[in-house]
């Protein structure tokens, strides 16, 4: 799931929790999902190391990315 999709899902979860008519066990499950998404999103920001890659496409249309040093 992309970072943006995660954040979007988080907002949905908060909105669902704030809304009416959600059984308590469902609410707890959503909360757990929210915590897990938060953890993944935060990991993505802090532990991922951005790379610089050159995109290469073969004659057969197969893509390859090669690290470049700039």
């Amino acid at each position: 799931m992309s970072y943006e999709k995660r954040v979007e899902r988080l907002r949905e979860i908060v909105a669902d929790l704030e809304g009416d008519g959600l059984p308590l066990d469902k609410a707890l499950k959503l909360f757990e999902e929210g915590i897990e998404i938060l953890r993944l999103a935060s990991d993505e920001l802090t532990s991922a190391e951005g790379r610089v890659q050159l995109l290469i496409e073969s004659a057969e249309g197969v893509f390859e990315t090669r690290e470049i040093d700039v």
Binding site: T46, A48, V52
Partner: peptide
């Protein structure tokens, strides 16, 4: 600004 972001270059 965002060291976690990767850059893909299409030359």
């Amino acid at each position: 600004r965002a060291p976690h972001v990767s850059l893909v270059v299409s030359a």
